[in-house]
Amino acid sequence: MQPQKTALITGASRGIGRAIAEELGKDHHIYAGASKDASQIVDKLPSAEPFEVDLTDTEALIRAAREIAQLDVLVLAAGVLHKAPFTELTDAQWRESLEVNVMAPVTLTRELLPALRRSSGLIITINSGAGLHGVEDNSAYCASKFALRGFTESLQEEEAGKVRVTSLHPGRTDTDMLAGDDGRPKMDAVNVAKAARLAVDAGPGAVVEFMRVRPARI
């Protein structure tokens, strides 16, 4: 019997990350990434364990990643959004946006790349429509997502033939991040999880490099 495949998912305690953990948890052992109390998702999955770490603490992130020797899928789903006009955003909000949305994915990818190369694995970065075009009152978020897209696309070129890399760009999704907004249509996070599943199931002989999924126009 082949060993069960494994997936590390950041932001697995809620929203898109949680939906992806529940989807991939059907046939993967899940490392459930959360800043605290990952038990709420771990306890609901057939095979899972917590990956509890503050994504802004680089040294702690490195230590936690080095505990993982075998990995097939890395899903970088954690993110923060500070919604405000540019003139009202603080330096601290800019730093957190870049640390969580860009630097944490970079650090995790660097540390886990050897394991992913051994398994001919897959990296999925959860980006956004904000990684494709500017959005009013989202300057820090857009800047971080543009940076994440550049990182992902460069990684696709460098790791071609060794690790598959997917840039997944969900549209408006019904999560805490968009709670209390203007009421425009949103889709369920399950729809994004299904898109992530497509990327997982496409391999190992093919790679889905880019996906844009958005609410249906009714």
Rank of each mutant, 00 (worst) to 15 (best):
Q2H: 14
G121D: 02
M103V: 13
Q2K: 12
E111N: 11
T90K: 10
D188S: 15
K186T: 04
D43E: 13
H28Y: 14
R149A: 09
V190E: 14
V102H: 05
N127M: 06
S144C: 02
D37G: 15
L74E: 04
S167W: 08
L168S: 05
E67H: 14
R66V: 03
S39V: 13
G171C: 00
C142Q: 02
P3D: 11
A48H: 03
P50K: 10
L76K: 04
R217D: 11
D91Y: 09
L55E: 05
P46Q: 10
M177F: 00
H28C: 11
V100F: 07
S47T: 12
E153R: 12
A140P: 02
G15N: 09
F146N: 05
S97Q: 02
G171D: 00
A104K: 03
L76E: 06
H133Q: 14
V80T: 08
S120Q: 13
N127H: 01
V53A: 09
H82E: 00
E59D: 13
P114R: 10
I218S: 14
K36E: 14
K145L: 00
G15D: 04
A199S: 12
N191M: 13
K44R: 13
R63L: 15
L112H: 02
E136F: 07
T58M: 10
G183H: 05
V135Y: 13
L155N: 07
L198W: 13
L76D: 04
K36R: 15
N127E: 09
A193T: 04
S35A: 14
K145H: 06
D188M: 12
G15A: 04
L45E: 06
E67Y: 11
I124K: 05
E23Q: 13
D57C: 06
T58S: 08
V190G: 02
L8E: 05
N101V: 01
E159S: 13
D27Q: 15
R95W: 11
D91G: 09
S154P: 11
K145P: 01
H169C: 05
G131Q: 06
A202H: 08
A199C: 09
S47I: 08
E153M: 10
E157I: 12
